[in-house]
Every structure is written in structure tokens, then in C-alpha cells.
Amino acid sequence: MSQESSSPTSSTSARTAVVTGASSGIGAATVRTLTAAGWTVFALARREAKLNALAAETGCTPIVTDITDEESTQAAVDRILAAGPVKALVNCAGGAIGKDPVATANLDDWRAMYELNVLGTLRITQKLLPALKESSGSVLVISSTAGIEPYEGGAGYCASKFAERVMARVLRLELIGEPVRVIDIAPGMVHTDEFSVKRFHGDAAKAEAVYAGVPDPLKAEDIAECVRWALEQPDTVDVDQIVVRPRAEGSYTKVYRQA
């Protein structure tokens, strides 16, 4: 039996996924999970060495891409579409920069978050949407609970993730009647190697304090499994949104920490 016919995602298109932000964290975990489940994966990110290592491990196709850059993104999309149909776009690329109050926030930090979290997601989604319509495919966005509940010091990141979530929701409404699913997965506290370190500009102590005392924060692999599950539902089943947190986190301001 062919891989396609045995898949819960019945379609005439091959199970090919494009994953952005694939060099680390949730993106890399998603590549590992999807390739293990039999998907063909194009892994997009800026860091060539990390992409090549991931390709050697998983068999994915690495494409060095900066989704905040028009030419880089177009070149990646051209290469992907030349290879055949695409079934899913998984928008993992994103990040938080800084945790300053609104009164003293750095405009460049806000601009960088919008360029990556919002405009980067928009750019590659627009370019792949026609192909996804042809394949009865899926647009999946990894947003954040920061796009649901704001918190002090998080205005820039929260604003960008609110925007990303609203973009996904509006796209879902605009595509009613079209053969495309739009899925939003909003993780809470996920302990990855780089997210908080980048947020605090390399300050490892501040980054580790985010998770201090929290029993079993989510791992990138937990979110990747949510991605796989959502994508492998039948084409007519749209998982509009998944909000996923560790058991210890009731909200951003209500987290259980062991002494």
C-alpha cells in the first residue's frame, strides 16, 4: 500500500510539508516528527549548518531561507514548487525580542518581531496558498498564548502574536468554500534551547529563570506532535485552534513553581 493511501489525509497530493524556522526549537522538532511519520519535508531557516545537520538526521530537504526577505523567500518557494505538490505549510518561524515595558521599549525590537512573526508568515503563506488550494492543503500557524492573554513586559511580542492569530483567523474566514484548512496552534510555556535566550539577548541566567521550579514545562516535541495530529486529520476536518500548556501553567500569570 502506498504511503499516501494509508494516510488519514486522503488526497491525490503527496504528503509534502514546508516547515519554516526549522533550524531549532519547535521547527526542528516538527521536521523530525513529520519525517518520522512519512512526510516529505522542506526545512526552511537562515542557519545553513543547523539545517544541514537536521537534513543528515531526518532526510528533509534543507533550504536556507530568510522569510523576512522577499528574494530569499521567492527563491525557496520556486524551488519547492518545482519539486511537485505541497500539502502543508507549517509556520514555525518566530521569536520574542526583549521584555521591556511599553514606555521604554526598543522600536527596533518591535519592528524585528513584526517582520518575522507577522510579515514573514504572511509572505510565505501568500506565495504557497495557490499550491495549497490545488492540493486541498493546510496552512498551519504556530502562534502563542501570548496572542490570547497579554502580560507586562510582553507588549511587543504579544502584539505580534495577536496579529498572527488574527491573520490566521481572517484567512480561515476568507477561504470558506475553498479546499484549504487554516490551523492555529497556540503553545504556552515551552522550554527550548533558544527562545528565552534570544529574548534576553543571550542572558542565559534570565532565560533559565523563566522555567525555574516549573515541573515539566512543555517540550518542542509536544508541539510537534500537535502539528502532526492536526495535519493528519481528514481534509474535511479543520482543527481551528489548539491551545496547549503544561499542566503547571494555568495562564501566564498563574504558574505553579516548586520551591
Rank of each mutant, 00 (worst) to 15 (best):
residue 174 E to P: 06
residue 178 E to W: 04
residue 109 D to G: 05
residue 172 R to H: 04
residue 141 V to F: 08
residue 141 V to D: 03
residue 150 P to L: 10
residue 130 P to D: 12
residue 144 S to I: 01
residue 193 D to H: 11
residue 186 A to R: 00
residue 171 L to Y: 03
residue 187 P to S: 03
residue 157 Y to M: 07
residue 185 I to E: 00
residue 133 K to W: 09
residue 201 H to L: 08
residue 157 Y to C: 07
residue 113 M to E: 10
residue 170 V to K: 06
residue 132 L to I: 09
residue 155 A to F: 02
residue 174 E to R: 08
residue 110 W to Y: 13
residue 161 K to H: 03
residue 122 L to Y: 15
residue 182 V to Y: 01
residue 202 G to I: 15
residue 145 T to W: 00
residue 164 E to A: 04
residue 159 A to N: 10
residue 164 E to C: 03
residue 158 C to G: 07
residue 158 C to K: 06
residue 207 A to V: 13
residue 173 L to T: 12
residue 131 A to K: 05
residue 141 V to G: 00
residue 147 G to S: 02
residue 115 E to Y: 01
residue 155 A to K: 03
residue 171 L to W: 01
residue 127 K to A: 15
residue 146 A to R: 02
residue 183 I to R: 00
residue 163 A to P: 04
residue 154 G to C: 08
residue 128 L to S: 05
residue 165 R to T: 10
residue 138 S to M: 01
residue 178 E to I: 05
residue 134 E to Q: 15
residue 215 P to C: 12
residue 205 A to M: 13
residue 173 L to C: 12
residue 210 V to K: 14
residue 156 G to I: 07
residue 204 A to R: 14
residue 130 P to Q: 14
residue 146 A to F: 04
residue 168 A to P: 04
residue 168 A to N: 02
residue 124 I to P: 11
residue 190 V to M: 05
residue 187 P to G: 01
residue 160 S to V: 05
residue 211 Y to I: 15
residue 148 I to W: 00
residue 110 W to M: 08
residue 140 L to A: 07
residue 169 R to T: 12
residue 152 E to C: 07
residue 194 E to V: 15
residue 148 I to L: 09
residue 201 H to E: 15
residue 213 G to E: 15
residue 127 K to F: 07
residue 214 V to Q: 04
residue 167 M to R: 06
residue 187 P to W: 01
residue 130 P to Y: 13
residue 133 K to D: 08
residue 129 L to D: 06
residue 207 A to N: 14
residue 126 Q to T: 13
residue 180 V to L: 02
residue 173 L to M: 09
residue 134 E to D: 15
residue 136 S to P: 06
residue 195 F to L: 09
residue 211 Y to H: 14
residue 190 V to F: 04
residue 163 A to H: 04
residue 144 S to F: 00
residue 146 A to I: 05
residue 183 I to S: 01
residue 127 K to P: 09
residue 191 H to W: 13
residue 119 L to C: 06
residue 157 Y to L: 07
residue 166 V to G: 04
residue 203 D to Y: 10
residue 137 G to R: 02
residue 124 I to R: 12
residue 135 S to T: 10
residue 109 D to P: 06
residue 114 Y to A: 09
residue 168 A to R: 01
residue 139 V to T: 03
residue 108 D to M: 06
residue 217 P to I: 11
residue 180 V to P: 01
residue 200 F to K: 08
residue 177 G to F: 08
residue 138 S to W: 00
residue 115 E to I: 01
residue 171 L to R: 06
residue 156 G to F: 10
residue 174 E to M: 03
residue 124 I to Q: 09
residue 169 R to S: 11
residue 142 I to P: 00
residue 148 I to E: 01
residue 148 I to N: 03
residue 109 D to C: 07
residue 119 L to Q: 14
residue 210 V to F: 14
residue 153 G to R: 09
residue 170 V to I: 13
residue 127 K to G: 12
residue 206 K to F: 10
residue 196 S to V: 14
residue 151 Y to H: 13
residue 214 V to S: 11
residue 146 A to H: 05
residue 141 V to Y: 02
residue 145 T to I: 07
residue 176 I to A: 07
residue 112 A to H: 14
residue 209 A to V: 13
residue 115 E to T: 02
residue 136 S to M: 00
residue 181 R to P: 02
residue 152 E to L: 13
residue 181 R to I: 02
residue 129 L to E: 08
residue 126 Q to Y: 08
residue 143 S to M: 00
residue 214 V to G: 06
residue 152 E to S: 15
residue 163 A to R: 04
